[in-house]
């Protein structure tokens, strides 16, 4: 088996006096679509933020594409080829859609073919290209946040609950877009609460609880095993199915 793109080994993270991550181990194989599941407060968002260097790991190490990333500052981690789409989307509302994308394209200009591709994924981005991001709807902001991660090729895309609070039709659209991204060969680590969306997208899965990984395996396996689902994810899964 080739080296995984991203590896976390025994990662601990403290926020203030709270010990959030208590030894997280998992890996994201190159080219895979890995879903990180778990109930609220299990430490999923903290895991992504720790990978991104936005919280510093107090112990353990994080390797990306063969390099140690554990103590690097956020800009270096991003420059190494990791894109991050946070839970609150964090689009720059005072900037236009174009400016948001321009900022994400670190070369200083937007690649025309990639832009075409993004427009084909999210036609709304073309329609509101010159509008301030603050005027977009929630779903459109989410699309912009994803578009921002796609505007230049990145080796790994971290996505935090992209379907949260969105209408079902938009969620379907979002899933379609992620399929495209997956087919284009990107490696994705997705944090998700919506098991249906997770099932449709992921090939590998990791489940977190109380700051630790409690299950790792293939998505197909988990999707087929209802008892396991029930044990790992509890009853709230039913609500989504």
């Amino acid at each position: 088996m080739p080296d995984p793109l991203l590896t976390l080994e025994g990662v601990h993270t403290h926020i203030g006096r709270y010990h959030i991550l208590q030894g997280v181990d998992f890996e994201v194989p190159r080219g895979s679509f890995t879903v990180l599941l778990g109930r609220n407060g299990a430490g999923k968002t903290t895991t992504l933020r720790t990978i991104m260097g936005l919280w510093k790991a107090s112990q353990g190490n994080i390797r990306f594409a063969g390099q140690d990333m554990t103590a690097r500052p956020t800009p270096e981690i991003a420059a190494a080829g990791i894109a991050y789409i946070p839970e609150n989307m964090s689009v720059f509302s005072g900037l236009t859609v174009r400016e948001n994308l321009l900022l994400a394209a670190r070369a200083g200009k937007i690649d025309a073919t990639r832009l075409e591709w993004i427009f084909s994924l999210f036609p709304a981005m073309q329609r509101f290209f010159g509008s301030a991001a603050g005027t977009l709807s929630g779903g459109q902001k989410q699309m912009l946040a994803i578009a921002r991660a796609l505007i230049e090729p990145r080796d790994l895309i971290l996505v935090d609950e992209p379907t949260k609070g969105l209408a079902p039709a938009i969620v379907a659209n979002m899933i379609k877009a992620f399929r495209e991204v997956k087919n284009a060969g990107a490696t994705v680590l997705l944090v998700e609460q919506n098991f249906m969306a997770a099932k449709m997208l992921g090939d590998a899965v990791a489940v977190m609880d109380d700051g630790r990984i409690v299950h790792r395996g293939a998505m197909a396996e988990l999707a087929a095993d209802h008892a396991l689902q029930h044990r790992l994810l509890g009853l709230h899964m039913d609500a989504h199915q």
Partner: peptide
């Protein structure tokens, strides 16, 4: 552009690699 984005959300500007 960076300044305007940074005033809004410095953390995200860092996460974009600046």
């Amino acid at each position: 552009l960076l300044v305007r984005a940074g005033v809004e959300n410095p953390e995200m500007v860092e996460a974009l690699g600046y």
